[in-house]
């Protein structure tokens, strides 16, 4: 359990540092993504021990879906705006998402080392 707590402390610290950097440098990259890069760099250069963050990281990633639910329910607040622009708000992202998947998969397969 202390290991788990230690891991959580590290994650929260990296998150906080990321947020501070994002805020003070006024860059559009959010603090959590900066924190993610620090997490990777810290592990890669041996500043963070793998065992310390492994448990908590896997738990958090396993619950990723849950953390999105409030934002999904938030759609309800925009009911009228949604209904007024239903066609564009549904059609454009749907077609565009399929295009994104197609391009991502094929470009990777094309350039992948065999």
């Amino acid at each position: 359990m202390p290991q788990f707590l230690k891991g959580l402390v590290i994650i929260m610290l990296l998150y906080a540092i990321g947020e501070l950097i994002s805020y003070y440098l006024n860059i559009p990259v959010p603090g959590n993504v900066i924190g993610m890069l620090f997490m990777f760099a810290g592990l890669q250069y041996g500043l963070i021990k793998k065992d310390t963050v492994e448990g908590i990281s896997k738990q958090l990633i396993g619950l990723l879906n849950l953390f999105f639910i409030p934002a999904g329910v938030g759609l309800l607040a925009y009911e009228s705006l949604l209904m007024d622009n239903l066609l564009v708000i549904v059609l454009a992202p749907v077609i565009s998402s399929l295009i994104v998947m197609l391009v991502a998969a094929y470009v990777f397969l094309l350039l992948k080392k065999r």
Binding site: L14, G35, M39, S57, K58, L60, I61, L63, F67
Partner: peptide, 8 residues
């Protein structure tokens, strides 16, 4: 924190 954890 979950996005930070993806660094792992």
């Amino acid at each position: 924190p979950s996005v930070v954890a993806l660094g792992f």
